[in-house]
Simulated scan of single mutants.
Amino acid sequence: MEQKKHLSANSQRFSARIFNIASMVASAIPPLLMIWIAASIFVYASVAHHPNPRVVHYNRIAGYRFYGVAGSMVVFGQPIYGLFGNWHGLVAVWGIIALVVIPLGLRDLVRVQREDWQDMDISEAKTHE
Results as ranks from 00 to 15, higher is better:
Trp94Thr: 09
Trp36Thr: 04
Arg111His: 11
Arg54Met: 10
Leu33Pro: 00
Leu33Phe: 01
Leu109Ala: 06
Ser40Trp: 01
Phe66Cys: 00
Pro31Asp: 11
Tyr64Pro: 01
Ser11Asp: 14
Ile18Gln: 08
Lys4Met: 13
Arg114Asp: 14
Arg17Ala: 10
Phe19Asp: 03
His49Gln: 12
Ile102Pro: 02
Ala48Pro: 04
Tyr64Val: 12
Phe14Val: 15
Met34Gln: 14
Asn59Gly: 03
Asn20Cys: 07
Ala39Gly: 10
Val55Leu: 04
Ser23Ala: 11
Ile61Tyr: 00
Ala28Phe: 09
Asp108Ser: 09
Gly63Ile: 02
Gln78Val: 11
Met34Lys: 11
Phe76Ala: 13
Ala45His: 06
Val93Glu: 12
Ile102Cys: 01
Val55Asn: 02
Gly85Ile: 05
Arg60Gln: 10
Leu33Ile: 00
His88Asn: 12
Ala92Cys: 05
Lys4Asp: 14
Phe19Tyr: 13
Gly82Ser: 11
His49Arg: 14
Phe84Lys: 06
Phe42Asp: 07
Gln113Pro: 00
Leu7Phe: 11
Ser123Ala: 10
Asn59Thr: 12
Ser11Thr: 14
Val25Leu: 09
Gly89Glu: 11
Ile18Ala: 11
Leu32Trp: 04
Arg114Leu: 13
Ser23His: 05
Pro103Glu: 08
Leu33Arg: 06
Glu129Phe: 15
Pro79Lys: 05
Asp119Asn: 09
Pro51Ile: 03
Ile41Thr: 13
Phe42Gly: 11
Glu129Ala: 14
Asp116Tyr: 07
Gly68Lys: 02
Lys5Asp: 11
His128Lys: 11
Arg13Ala: 09
Thr127Met: 14
Val55Ser: 02
Trp94Gly: 05
Ile97Phe: 01
Val69Arg: 00
Val110Glu: 07
Glu115Phe: 15
Leu33His: 02
His50Pro: 03
Gly85Phe: 02
His57Gln: 07
His49Ile: 13
Asp108Met: 07
Asp119Ile: 04
Gly82Phe: 02
Met120Pro: 02
Asp108Ala: 07
Ile18Val: 15
Asn86Trp: 10
Phe84Glu: 07
Gln3Val: 15
Leu109Ser: 05
Leu83Asn: 00
Gln3Ser: 07
Phe76Thr: 03
Leu99Val: 12
Gly71Tyr: 06
Gln113Cys: 04
Ile18Asn: 02
Ile122Leu: 07
Val25Asp: 04
Leu7Ile: 08
Ala62Gly: 04
Leu90Cys: 03
Val101Thr: 08
Ile37Phe: 06
Ala45Asn: 12
Asn52His: 06
Ala125Lys: 08
Pro103Lys: 00
Met24Thr: 08
Leu106His: 01
Val69Gln: 04
Ile35Lys: 03
Arg60Cys: 05
Arg65Ala: 07
Gly82His: 10
Asp121Pro: 00
Ala28Ile: 09
Trp87Met: 14
Tyr81Phe: 04
Ala22Trp: 09
Trp87Cys: 03
His128Trp: 15
Phe42Gln: 05
Leu32Ile: 05
Ala39Thr: 09
Gly95Cys: 05
Leu33Asp: 09
Arg111Trp: 03
Phe84Met: 13
Arg17His: 01
Ile96Ser: 03
Val91Ser: 12
Lys4Ser: 11
Gly85Trp: 02
Leu104Glu: 08
Gln3Pro: 00
Val55Ile: 04
Lys4Leu: 13
Phe42Leu: 15
Val75Leu: 15
Ala22Asn: 10
Gly68Asn: 10
Gly71Pro: 07
Val56Asp: 06
Glu129Leu: 13
Phe14Asp: 06
